[in-house]
Simulated assay, not measured.
Amino acid sequence: MKLITYEIKTVFGITQRVGVLRDTEVIDLIHAYSLYLSKIKSSSRAYETAKQIIGKDMLSFIQGGSFSLEAAKTALDFIYSTPAEEVRKNDIGEIFFSLNDVTVKVPLQPVSIRDTLNSEVHFKNSLEVVGISELPALFYERPYYYRTSHTSIAGHEDVIPWPSFGERLDFELEFAAIVGKKGINISAETAHEYIMGYTIFNDISIRDYQRKDMSTSMGPSKCKNFSHGNILGPCIVTSDELDPSNIRLQARINGEVWSDSRSSDMHYSFAQLIEFISKEETLYPGEIICSGTMAFGCGLEINRYLKSNDIIELEVDGIGILRNQIIKF
Rank of each mutant, 00 (worst) to 15 (best):
residue 48 E to M: 00
residue 56 K to C: 07
residue 54 I to D: 04
residue 41 K to Q: 01
residue 43 S to A: 07
residue 54 I to C: 05
residue 59 L to H: 09
residue 48 E to T: 00
residue 73 K to I: 05
residue 50 A to V: 01
residue 48 E to N: 03
residue 72 A to Y: 02
residue 41 K to V: 03
residue 71 A to M: 05
residue 50 A to C: 05
residue 41 K to A: 03
residue 71 A to P: 03
residue 56 K to D: 15
residue 58 M to E: 08
residue 66 S to Y: 05
residue 49 T to H: 00
residue 45 R to D: 13
residue 48 E to L: 03
residue 63 Q to Y: 14
residue 40 I to D: 00
residue 72 A to K: 00
residue 67 F to H: 14
residue 70 E to W: 03
residue 64 G to E: 14
residue 73 K to P: 01
residue 58 M to P: 12
residue 72 A to I: 06
residue 51 K to P: 00
residue 40 I to M: 05
residue 41 K to S: 01
residue 40 I to K: 09
residue 53 I to E: 05
residue 43 S to N: 06
residue 49 T to S: 01
residue 52 Q to F: 12
residue 73 K to V: 08
residue 73 K to H: 07
residue 45 R to L: 05
residue 53 I to L: 02
residue 46 A to R: 02
residue 53 I to G: 05
residue 42 S to V: 03
residue 47 Y to G: 00
residue 51 K to L: 02
residue 49 T to F: 02
residue 53 I to S: 03
residue 57 D to S: 13
residue 62 I to T: 11
residue 59 L to N: 10
residue 55 G to F: 08
residue 47 Y to K: 07
residue 44 S to F: 12
residue 57 D to K: 12
residue 46 A to T: 02
residue 52 Q to L: 08
residue 47 Y to H: 03
residue 56 K to A: 15
residue 50 A to I: 02
residue 57 D to H: 13
residue 52 Q to A: 08
residue 66 S to Q: 13
residue 59 L to Q: 09
residue 73 K to Q: 10
residue 69 L to N: 05
residue 43 S to L: 01
residue 41 K to N: 06
residue 72 A to G: 01
residue 53 I to Y: 04
residue 70 E to G: 09
residue 60 S to L: 06
residue 55 G to Q: 08
residue 51 K to D: 03
residue 53 I to H: 04
residue 55 G to S: 09
residue 44 S to M: 07
residue 59 L to M: 14
residue 56 K to T: 13
residue 69 L to G: 02
residue 47 Y to E: 10
residue 62 I to F: 10
residue 67 F to T: 15
residue 60 S to N: 15
residue 72 A to W: 01
residue 71 A to W: 07
residue 58 M to D: 10
residue 52 Q to Y: 10
residue 49 T to M: 01
residue 47 Y to M: 05
residue 64 G to H: 14
residue 70 E to A: 06
residue 62 I to G: 10
residue 49 T to D: 04
residue 50 A to D: 06
residue 67 F to C: 14
residue 61 F to Q: 07
residue 65 G to Y: 13
residue 51 K to S: 08
residue 45 R to S: 11
residue 49 T to Y: 01
residue 61 F to R: 10
residue 64 G to M: 13
residue 49 T to A: 01
residue 66 S to I: 14
residue 62 I to W: 13
residue 64 G to F: 15
residue 61 F to D: 08
residue 73 K to G: 03
residue 67 F to R: 15
residue 45 R to F: 11
residue 46 A to S: 12
residue 45 R to T: 13
residue 63 Q to G: 15
residue 55 G to H: 08
residue 61 F to K: 05
residue 47 Y to D: 01
residue 68 S to Y: 09
residue 61 F to P: 09
residue 69 L to P: 03
residue 47 Y to V: 09
residue 55 G to V: 07
residue 50 A to E: 05
residue 69 L to K: 14
residue 49 T to I: 05
residue 61 F to S: 14
residue 46 A to W: 06
residue 46 A to I: 02
residue 69 L to R: 11
residue 60 S to E: 15
residue 41 K to D: 02
residue 40 I to Q: 06
residue 57 D to I: 10
residue 45 R to G: 00
residue 71 A to G: 04
residue 57 D to Y: 15
residue 59 L to V: 07
residue 70 E to L: 07
residue 69 L to W: 06
residue 44 S to N: 11
residue 61 F to L: 14
residue 41 K to R: 09
